[in-house]
Design a binder for these strands. Structure first.
Ligand code: MN
Ligand code: MN
Ligand code: MN
Ligand code: MN
Lengths: 221, 221
DNA sequence: ATCAAAGTTTAGGTTTTGATAACTATAAGT
DNA sequence: ACTTATAGTTATCAAAACCTAAACTTTGAT
């Protein structure tokens, strides 16, 4: 019904509307994200607009309609359930499932997704800590903060938003996973790094503030 | 690398070369199988020929090359492992997995297929009794006969070659599965039916000889 | 020899996705 | 206000991957 490509566009619009308060995404951002030229995005937005999946006003950007958001959340649900299934049922590494899910999300039937959900006990989060939208399209995200914007203190890692296998493997080496509790010891804003220690371990982790931008945490005091 | 469509053509050529002794498939048969016009098949065979997947001589039909056969067996392996995975690991009904596998076979990565194979203990047969080609592309099919061509006697059901869910559900009602042993009591070739009884049950099964054409059996004396 | 069936060819069409490059609107700076 | 830079739009072209229609050719059978 929706092609692979249009589904990926819908996800891209969704991704970037979270960032922008208005929910309106500028097309250049999508072009950059998907690696296509701006003209291509304009065309696609017109197309999606014709199918009532986005509202698009010339030069004002695009926003998902209700049915567009439903479609986007459905694909995101698929993606996240598939990732968790690959990790929990099939025993793959969390660093290794994103690309696979990126393909399968467009092909696996609703019935199979429902069965995965059932086997996994209607899970709330994927292996990277991202919340899984419900079958009815409700996504509940608690209030988290980017580690890059935190002061020193004690936190719990909730979600890793950058899913490149290199970064995930690096986190694994420190056994730093969603759920881990840690102390943010020191922030060197000039040097652009921060250092932290996992509770129950004495090795120190030093990472760039840029990298810390893809870690979502909540206070654990 | 190979598109969904070309992969399905390769499977179709493979399917019908088994039937023909020469291994040469007439293009009309493929057109009928895939529901396209003859000209479309001619074009596709030229295309596959250019990619060294089939040998094709005008009006003489097509046959898979070695690499074409390898490709076909790889997809068949995927298909059958996926079906078995869906039944054994995910608990779906055997009548319900073919269509799903028909899609997934083109998308699931090699790594995931290898993992399924491992989880299933390197199985020899799919849920319908069809042999699963090895990763190196070897398919060992024992010598079976079509029930439609058997005399009365005792047999074991090995494989069901028609995978429509209606037919599979009908077999399920009688608990008639690959592995089942039964007596072929009576053949009414004029009426076009045969009747048999499963060992350990006294209900009689009557089916058309046409339907019995899709049951492969071996003697169980 | 004739004919029907099977297969081929040609020409054309659709869908989906994308690029290029000239053009235009908007916002920002001076 | 005027210029300029930036972002976005438009129109045109393209290519891949399928497919059909219909006229034509070959082949095998009667
Ligand atoms: Mn992912
Ligand atoms: Mn995707
Ligand atoms: Mn099947
Ligand atoms: Mn298929």
């Amino acid at each position: 019904m929706n092609s692979r490509t249009t589904e990926n566009y819908l996800k891209a619009v969704y991704r970037h509307s979270r960032a922008n308060s208005s929910g309106n995404v500028s097309l250049g951002i999508i072009a950059g994200d998907l690696g296509v030229t701006p003209g291509t995005v304009t065309q696609m937005m017109k197309h999606l607009s014709g199918r009532d999946l986005v509202v698009y006003e010339s030069r004002r950007g695009a926003a998902l309609t209700d049915s567009g958001e439903r479609a986007a959340l459905d694909i995101i649900r698929r993606h996240r359930l598939i990732e968790l299934f690959l990790v929990e049922v099939m025993g793959l590494d969390w660093a290794d499932v994103h690309d696979e899910a990126e393909e399968l999300e467009h092909v696996v039937s609703d019935r199979l997704i429902a069965r995965m959900d059932e086997m996994l006990g209607h899970p709330a989060r994927d292996p990277h800590g991202a919340p899984i939208p419900s079958a009815s399209g409700v996504l509940k995200s608690g209030q988290t903060r980017r580690l890059a914007e935190c002061e020193t203190g004690t936190y719990r890692l909730i979600q890793v938003t950058k899913e490149t296998s290199g970064f995930l493997e690096w986190l694994s080496e420190y056994k730093f996973f969603p759920g881990s509790i840690f102390d943010l010891h020191h922030i060197d804003s000039m040097g652009g790094t921060l250092s932290l220690g996992l509770s129950g371990q004495n090795k120190k982790i030093v990472m760039s503030i840029e990298a810390a931008g893809s870690l979502l945490v909540e206070e654990a005091g």
